[in-house]
Design a protein around this nucleic acid. Structure first.
Lengths: 259, 259
DNA sequence: AAGTGGTCTAGACCACGTT
DNA sequence: ACGTGGTCTAGACCACTTT
């Protein structure tokens, strides 16, 4: 079933220098980890489902339970999996409050976080420009779905997001299907298209509101807005979403932890 | 030497409900971890120094090497310690490039990050207002050192920071001592006052530049700036710094990773 | 050669949840 | 009672660094 490279059977691969140019050696648990990610990426286990028990995985990969454990531990630390004592290990899903706060980092100055109300303003097919192509690893001109949406909290418009998705991965995505959905967008992507967002990189800047966005957010022209440019990645570190958001930050702030 | 609570010797502490009101049970490796943090906090091992080997620690705490390993692994994951194969485990220090990027998250739109030039604009003793008292766990009116500094990149003024520190922890801190120091501020705090910043929480907003800051950053009044409010914590999760920064984000951006 | 952390194994027992 | 993940141990061997 598996073709793992064991230390004792492949000492030659471990030179002092990568003279052969071949793939670098990696510990068993890293190989297990890669195989698990591969299974997740292929959809062998769906978000919310349990993966096989550690004992089963150990048997499947022909390694000890401790080695499987270390691989799963790291995937749990990266939030791809969630362990629940007594129950099993589950594939993370965006249909949970905890996960949502990891990807929507707005918190109110006062009081408890309120659920966001989402309104789809636009959804159309376009062609990737140079930036989209570079960010999403597409070719310029490749088809892309462009979505514009407005997030409000307690009726106050707060965020305008422009979202760009490779059409190839989101076939059949329309404004209607979006409008009929309640809950987080990433949950929708997960269940409808089998695309799970795992990680994202963001660039934050303060910018003046242009006429377009100012109108939607009901703020004055040139009001300072927090602009958040995001690239989201799925399991195999493939970029699958480009997003540019404008946040009104008088009643809300973007929270971040430096570790 | 140690007074660890072992599972087998203290089963009574582990009720279904904390009816006794006593401290909750915690695994051995968590107890070891807490003892290690305590030693770090007391300055038993200084930043940059090696801590005892795993074998020594196992002997000291009367546990197996594997249990020590798990404790150290977590502290390494939190960047309090750094492991170096073949050499030992070392206390993290801010006198390193890697650590700096964790706490200064500005990156240029184009090209490689340049070293920042720091200029101390002001350093004075003040009394804690309500916000400072709350953030730093002081009493209103407690003495606080207030520092204002300007960061420039390639001669371009980019960040104005207002920094507030509990005077009790930073005795003898003056504008002169600050001015004579080269390198990151947190490195200075670490070596001069034995205060190591380990973690921070930030709140980000877009705000218009006021006259004061606009003048220092050489931007127009009301230019959108990224405002970053930070509370930094040292080993025992004690807040030891309150900081408010204003960033010009036309040539630089604030980078963040969502995991 | 010796000492350090890194990997891997095998087994025991505990805590939690379900049957 | 059983199966799951969680903790702890003891030992073997590997990889890196210094002596």
């Amino acid at each position: 079933m598996s073709d793992l490279t064991v230390r004792s059977s492949a000492p030659a691969e471990r030179g002092t220098a990568p003279a052969t140019g071949s793939a670098a050696f990696s510990p068993l648990y890293q190989q297990i980890k890669a195989l698990l990610v591969q299974s997740l990426d292929r959809g062998e286990w769906k978000p919310g489902e349990a993966i096989p028990s550690e004992i089963e995985l150990a048997a499947r990969f022909q390694v000890s339970q401790g080695t499987v454990r270390k691989a799963v531990d790291e995937l749990a630390a990266e939030h791809l999996l969630m362990r629940r004592q007594g129950k099993g290990t589950f594939v993370s899903t965006h249909h949970e409050a905890r996960v949502r706060f990891r990807f929507l980092r707005l918190a109110p100055n006062e009081g408890e976080p309120q659920p966001a109300e989402s309104r789809i303003l636009d959804c159309r097919r376009i062609r990737a420009n140079a930036e989209m192509a570079r960010s999403l690893e597409l070719k310029a001109g490749d088809p892309v779905v462009a979505i514009r949406r407005l997030l409000s909290f307690s009726g106050v418009p707060t965020v305008v997001d422009d979202i760009y998705l490779p059409s190839a991965l989101f076939k059949g995505l329309t404004a209607e299907s979006l409008a009929g959905y309640v809950g987080p967008l990433y949950g929708f992507f997960e269940t409808q298209f089998g695309v799970s967002m795992v990680r994202a990189e963001e660039k934050l800047r303060a910018v003046p509101a242009d006429a377009d966005v100012a109108g939607l957010l009901k703020v004055n022209l040139a009001t300072p807005l927090l602009r958040v440019d995001r690239i989201s990645y799925t399991y195999a570190d493939r970029p699958v979403e480009l997003r540019s958001g404008h946040y009104v930050t008088d009643q809300y702030y973007y929270r971040n932890s430096l570790n």
